[in-house]
Design a protein around this nucleic acid. Structure first.
Lengths: 146, 146
DNA sequence: TAGAATCAGTTGGAGTACAAAGTAATAATG
DNA sequence: CATTATTACTTTGTACTCCAACTGATTCTA
């Protein structure tokens, strides 16, 4: 029960630590969503895109989410298992997997309470548009740099 | 080869997407480090803390990293397997696992090229101190909100 | 048109992360 | 002092993520 005295890290480590902490918070919330609303953060994001663009292909979904194709494979499988989407490969190009949301999937999207989007919305409300832009740009800059 | 026309998402989704993208970029770089310098991002961060605080316990390390104890178990195992740290439980409290860096571990820390810290350092150089503060605060705000 | 190159998606393996449940050691309580 | 509670860490199970290698379908080319 030694109460962990605070320690001083350098600027980069400090920044990295915050970024990591935010990342973990994001993941944590995402997992909690699974028990509360039935889908995780990535699953819900994918579901939204599939809902908005009916007939979306798996590859395009991966590019939209900036995810590796194999990652999307898993997310889709879990969404399909739970009956939230259907996957068809009966289009003109039979390599392509066409995705469509089900009514059950649409029902999941209807409720926003407890989602990450909600928390993001709350957080962004506290910022001016100038600050928002600065944060957006920094995130982009970092992502490109890495 | 349909070149993915850009699509318009809402502000929250846009932000969320960027945050996620940055997160993935972070993970990607972290994994690449494994092949280039022999340890991943989290592993190197843990190694740095163990190096700075000899005799650190596993639990305290977990709290410093804002990680779940079970996550730290895995990271430590991999570091120990590669001979970068040693774990002892011969202290006064035999539940506690005391961590110490080896000379091999210290050698890994010596080289900063290709690490995430380096990229972060580069990215932050492009910002004014005011902007840096704004970004820091937003990250904190979001992490608390989630 | 047969063979080669490309493309779409999946599989397997490693790493990170969490929660829940388990084990062992120490502390607290009656 | 024996029982109970707490603490420290590990194990198990699920999810997300990447890369490398694979299968199957389509396109290109000689």
């Amino acid at each position: 029960m030694t109460s962990d005295p605070p320690i001083e890290l350098g600027t980069e480590l400090e920044f990295l630590s915050r970024l990591w902490t935010l990342d973990h918070a994001l993941q944590k919330r995402s997992k909690k969503m699974l028990t509360t609303i039935g889908v995780t953060g990535p699953q819900r994001l994918a579901l939204r895109l599939i809902g908005r663009f009916p007939g979306l292909t798996a590859g395009r979904l991966a590019r939209l989410l900036h995810l590796h194709p194999s990652t999307v494979t898993g997310v889709m499988q879990r969404l399909a298992e739970r009956g939230l989407i259907v996957r068809r490969n009966d289009g003109p190009d039979r390599r392509r997997l066409l995705l469509q949301i089900t009514s059950k999937g649409a029902a999941v999207l209807a409720d926003k309470t407890g989602t990450i989007e909600e928390a993001v919305h709350e957080s962004l409300r506290a910022l001016t548009s100038v600050e928002t832009t600065a944060v957006f740009n920094t995130l982009d800059l970092l992502a490109r740099r890495l």
